[in-house]
Computed example of a mutant assay.
Amino acid sequence: MENGRLEKQIRLPLDELKLAFAASCVEGLARKTGKPYIEVYERMSRVGAIENYILKNYDTLHTESREYINNKERSTAC
Rank of each mutant, 00 (worst) to 15 (best):
A20N: 11
N52L: 07
K72F: 04
I50P: 00
K32F: 10
M1F: 12
P36E: 14
K32D: 10
S75L: 08
E2Y: 05
Y58L: 06
C25V: 12
C25N: 02
R11G: 03
P13M: 05
L17N: 07
E73P: 02
Y68H: 11
A20W: 05
E16N: 06
G48C: 02
E39S: 14
G28C: 03
L14G: 04
A30H: 05
E42S: 12
L6M: 08
P36W: 06
E51M: 05
Y53F: 15
E64V: 04
R74S: 14
E42I: 06
A30W: 03
Y37E: 10
L14V: 12
N3F: 12
H62E: 09
N70D: 11
E73Q: 05
I69S: 00
E64G: 04
T76S: 08
C78N: 07
R46P: 01
Q9D: 07
R5M: 14
H62C: 09
T33K: 11
S75V: 09
D15S: 13
R74N: 12
I69F: 02
R66N: 10
E67L: 06
E16P: 02
R43F: 03
S75M: 10
G28Y: 01
R31T: 07
E7Y: 11
P36V: 09
E73M: 15
A30M: 11
E39A: 14
E42G: 11
I69H: 00
Y58K: 03
R11F: 09
Y41D: 03
N57W: 05
H62S: 09
E16W: 09
T76A: 08
S75P: 03
K8E: 13
T33R: 13
D59G: 04
L17H: 09
E16Q: 11
I38K: 11
T60R: 08
E16M: 08
I50T: 00
E16L: 12
I10G: 01
L19D: 15
C78E: 10
V26W: 01
L19N: 15
R11I: 10
K18E: 12
H62F: 12
N70I: 07
I10Y: 04
E7M: 09
Y41F: 15
A22L: 03
A20P: 02
Y53V: 01
Y68P: 04
P36R: 12
E2M: 06
E39L: 11
R43G: 03
A20D: 08
K32C: 06
D59P: 03
A23R: 15
R46M: 07
Y58F: 15
N57P: 04
V26T: 05
P13W: 04
R46I: 04
T60I: 06
I38D: 14
L19P: 02
A20K: 09
S24G: 05
L29S: 01
T60H: 07
A22F: 01
K35T: 05
K56P: 02
G48W: 01
K32M: 11
Y58E: 03
A22P: 00
S45I: 06
V26F: 03
K35W: 06
Y37L: 08
F21V: 03
A23T: 14
Y53W: 15
L19E: 15
E64T: 04
E7P: 02
K18W: 02
P13I: 07
T33W: 06
G28F: 01
E64R: 08
K8M: 13
S45A: 08
A22Y: 01
D15G: 08
